Amino acid sequence: MADADARPAKASGTYRIGGDLSVDRLGYGAMQITGPGVWGDPKDPAEAVRVLRRAVELGVTFIDTADSYGPFVSEQLIREALHPYADDLVIATKAGLTRSGPHDWRPVGRPEYLRQQCELSLRHLGLEQIPLYQLHRIDPKVPLADQLGELALLKQEGKIGHIGLSEVSVAEIEAAQAITPIVSVQNLYNVANRQSEEVLEYCERNDLAFIPWFPIATGELAKPGGPLDAIAREHGATPAQLALAWLLRRSPVMLPIPGTSSVAHLEENVAAAQVQLTDDEYAALTKAV
């Protein structure tokens, strides 16, 4: 089997996060390998391990997780499945959201808390340095300079390589950049929801990685007879694959991280890297919303 077929993620192209972390652009988001409500252990831990190992086999070199997924369950499964890590594997994690139960998320950005969570993530992942550490949410109760100042200290100490943000506006990115260098932004974005278009354009202009979470939402577009459905039929692809192909085409700084707890679904998602949209198809999907 040709390498392109065996490792389809390679067809997504590469991007250098922060100028030095080279990743294949279609990655994997590890939120869904936990229990219901992103809480506790998965129903089938062995399948979660298989998914992670299969992702790497398919050429994925960028895995995104967070301390709050489980909490810690996702990070621990990543270590179980993939440690010692391949040299080209970049693992990103986040801190700044606490959990008190399923579906419950609350921002906490106190410096001592962020430091504690970084130390725990290092231990749970089995890393000496976290390549990309993201502030999961800005805590409105804590000065931004205190939150990012602590991450800058952790970077200075060599515990993290680069700093990223999640769910932020352009103004918040600029305020953060005044405190410490920022290399990535993770916002909600997909073919059907482009409220973060201004943020994406800012990332393009400033060569920041843009990591869209919830990347496969297709909604009305995937209905029979809709634009995704029609183009999918022509390609012999699924609407989800087209949604990912659209993201990859949308911007060179785009790093989609579709997540799943199923090997079959993972293989379908990663195959999206090989779907090449024509100019007309891309335009049709862009105009559909």
Rank of each mutant, 00 (worst) to 15 (best):
R16G: 10
R16M: 06
I17G: 08
G18K: 08
D20F: 11
D20R: 11
D20V: 12
L21Q: 14
L21Y: 13
L21K: 13
S22A: 14
V23T: 12
D24A: 13
R25S: 13
L26C: 15
L26S: 14
G27K: 11
G27Y: 07
Y28A: 00
G29P: 13
G29V: 12
G29N: 14
G29Y: 08
A30Y: 05
A30V: 02
A30T: 03
M31C: 04
M31P: 00
M31K: 10
Q32R: 15
Q32D: 12
I33F: 00
I33H: 02
I33M: 00
I33N: 10
T34N: 02
T34L: 01
G35F: 02
G35C: 02
G35L: 00
P36R: 09
G37S: 04
G37K: 02
V38Y: 14
V38K: 05
W39Y: 02
W39L: 03
W39H: 11
W39P: 00
G40K: 08
G40V: 06
G40S: 07
P42E: 01
K43P: 13
K43E: 10
K43M: 15
D44H: 05
A46Y: 06
E47K: 10
E47N: 14
E47I: 06
A48V: 03
A48P: 03
R50K: 03
R50C: 00
V51W: 01
L52F: 04
L52D: 02
R54H: 09
E57R: 12
E57W: 03
E57H: 06
L58R: 11
L58T: 08
L58W: 03
G59R: 05
G59P: 08
V60A: 13
F62Y: 07
F62M: 13
I63L: 07
I63D: 02
I63G: 02
I63K: 01
D64A: 00
S68T: 11
Y69M: 05
Y69F: 10
Y69C: 13
G70Q: 10
P71Y: 01
P71G: 11
F72N: 13
E75G: 05
E75K: 04
Q76P: 07
L77D: 01
L77F: 09
L77P: 03
I78Q: 05
I78V: 07
I78C: 09
A81G: 00
H83G: 04
H83A: 01
H83M: 03
H83K: 07
P84I: 13
P84L: 10
P84T: 13
A86W: 15
A86S: 15
A86T: 12
D87E: 10
D87R: 15
D87V: 09
D88V: 13
D88E: 12
D88S: 15
L89H: 09
V90P: 04
V90M: 08
I91G: 11
I91M: 08
A92S: 10
T93I: 06
K94H: 03
A95H: 06
G96P: 01
L97M: 06
T98V: 01
R99K: 14
R99D: 08
R99P: 07
R99L: 06
G101N: 01
G101L: 04
H103N: 11
D104T: 10
